[in-house]
Simulated scan of single mutants.
Amino acid sequence: MHDSERVIMQVACTSYDSGSKLVAAMLDNMAKLAGSDRADILSGPAESAFGWDFYPVAISRAFVQQLANMPENDIWRMKGANLDEKFATWLNRQLKLRVEGVQVKLLSDLKSSRFGLF
């Protein structure tokens, strides 16, 4: 799956109920701060494997750019070769500050396995 208009990530969480609510709340809050629309963020159904729940999230590149250009965050200072990678690193850092057992990977980084690597 490739979409040039969206950053596509896979979310992995040990508890889908709490993890997905946290990710959704964080992304909703970011959308409000950036003056963006919730339609810029789409998520798909979860699948379980190895004690983890995995589900896709697609975020508008325009929204990611808007968020990265806000002065109060440090997305541009994160490690990564491009904005997608920097955003994924930044989002993981934000999640880690709030809860354990939730992480994101860019779909393009997932090389093998039906469920991806985390």
Score class of each variant (00 low, 15 high):
M1E: 05
H2W: 09
H2M: 03
H2C: 01
D3S: 10
D3Q: 08
D3H: 10
E5S: 15
R6D: 11
Q10A: 13
C13H: 02
T14K: 14
S15Y: 01
Y16T: 01
Y16G: 01
S18R: 02
G19T: 06
G19C: 13
K21P: 00
M26T: 05
M26W: 05
M26G: 03
N29E: 14
M30L: 13
K32T: 07
K32H: 12
A34H: 03
G35F: 02
S36F: 04
D37A: 04
D37V: 03
D37M: 02
D37S: 15
A39M: 02
L42W: 03
G44P: 08
A46T: 11
E47R: 13
E47Y: 08
S48I: 06
F50Q: 12
G51D: 10
W52T: 07
Y55A: 09
P56Y: 09
A58D: 05
A58M: 11
I59A: 04
S60A: 11
Q65W: 04
Q65G: 15
Q65N: 09
Q66V: 02
L67I: 05
L67G: 07
A68H: 04
M70C: 08
M70D: 06
P71H: 04
E72W: 00
N73L: 10
D74H: 13
M78S: 07
K79R: 15
K79S: 14
K79C: 05
G80Q: 05
G80S: 07
G80F: 09
G80D: 06
N82S: 01
N82Q: 01
L83V: 06
D84F: 04
E85M: 00
K86T: 06
F87V: 03
A88M: 08
T89G: 01
W90N: 00
N92R: 09
Q94V: 01
L97E: 13
L97K: 15
R98T: 10
V99M: 13
E100Q: 12
E100L: 10
E100A: 15
G101E: 00
V102S: 06
Q103T: 13
V104T: 13
K105M: 06
L106Q: 12
L107A: 02
L107R: 01
S108D: 14
S108L: 12
S108T: 14
D109Y: 03
D109R: 10
D109I: 00
D109H: 07
L110S: 14
L110W: 02
S112W: 07
S113G: 15
R114L: 13
F115G: 04
L117M: 11
F118S: 13
